[in-house]
Computed example of a mutant assay.
Amino acid sequence: MSYIYGIFDKDNCLYIGQTKRDNPEKTRWEEHKREIKNGRHKIKKLNTYKDNIDNLRFEVLCEVETSNSLVLSTLENFYNSLYHPFNSCVISGFRSNVTLKREDNRELCKEIIEVIKKHYS
């Protein structure tokens, strides 16, 4: 099982990520909180929340039965397009990292997310 998740401050999405770890609310969320508290999160703007970390909320946005990195990065990118967090979607593993462009068509993003979720549920 794999997950796409978001970190939110009230209704504002600050970060979209993906994980293949079980129980992301514990594993990834605890890791993000520790990095933010220590001022060491890779998204520097998140470090500004270290004194207000209790105001942040972790939410699993999507759960799929695949570990395919391309599928997960595609989902992450379309969620990035919907929520516009601080971070961009970056795919590693090429000769250099590739940053995906956000899609402006919200309805297209929603449709593609639903197709992928349906196929990998």
Rank of each mutant, 00 (worst) to 15 (best):
M1E: 11
S2E: 10
Y3I: 14
Y3W: 05
Y3V: 06
Y5H: 04
Y5L: 02
G6H: 02
I7P: 02
F8N: 00
D9H: 09
D11A: 01
D11Q: 09
N12L: 12
C13P: 03
C13T: 10
C13N: 07
L14G: 00
Y15S: 00
Y15N: 01
Y15L: 00
G17V: 14
Q18V: 03
T19H: 05
T19N: 02
T19Y: 08
K20D: 07
K20M: 08
R21T: 02
R21A: 05
N23W: 04
P24V: 14
T27M: 04
R28V: 12
W29G: 06
W29S: 10
E30I: 08
E30W: 05
E30Y: 07
E31S: 11
H32I: 12
K33S: 01
R34Y: 04
E35G: 10
E35K: 04
I36M: 10
K37T: 09
N38D: 02
N38A: 11
N38S: 03
N38I: 15
G39K: 11
G39P: 01
R40K: 12
K42F: 05
I43M: 07
I43P: 00
K45Q: 06
K45A: 04
T48Q: 14
T48K: 15
Y49N: 11
D51T: 15
N52A: 13
I53H: 05
N55Y: 05
N55H: 09
R57I: 13
R57C: 10
R57L: 06
F58G: 11
E59Q: 11
E59W: 07
V60E: 13
L61K: 09
C62Q: 09
C62Y: 12
C62I: 04
E63A: 10
V64H: 10
E65G: 05
E65P: 02
E65S: 09
T66P: 04
T66D: 14
L70I: 14
L70T: 14
V71M: 06
V71I: 15
L72W: 06
S73L: 11
L75Q: 07
N77E: 06
N77F: 13
F78M: 03
F78S: 00
Y79H: 05
N80R: 12
S81F: 06
L82P: 03
H84V: 13
H84K: 14
H84N: 12
S88V: 15
S88P: 01
S88E: 12
C89S: 08
V90A: 00
V90D: 01
I91R: 03
G93H: 15
F94L: 14
F94I: 15
S96G: 11
N97M: 12
N97A: 12
N97P: 00
V98C: 14
T99C: 02
K101L: 08
K101D: 11
R102L: 08
R102I: 08
R102G: 00
E103G: 00
R106T: 15
R106K: 14
K110P: 00
K110Y: 02
E111S: 03
I112A: 08
I113T: 03
I113F: 03
I116M: 00
I116G: 01
I116A: 00
K118N: 11
S121V: 08
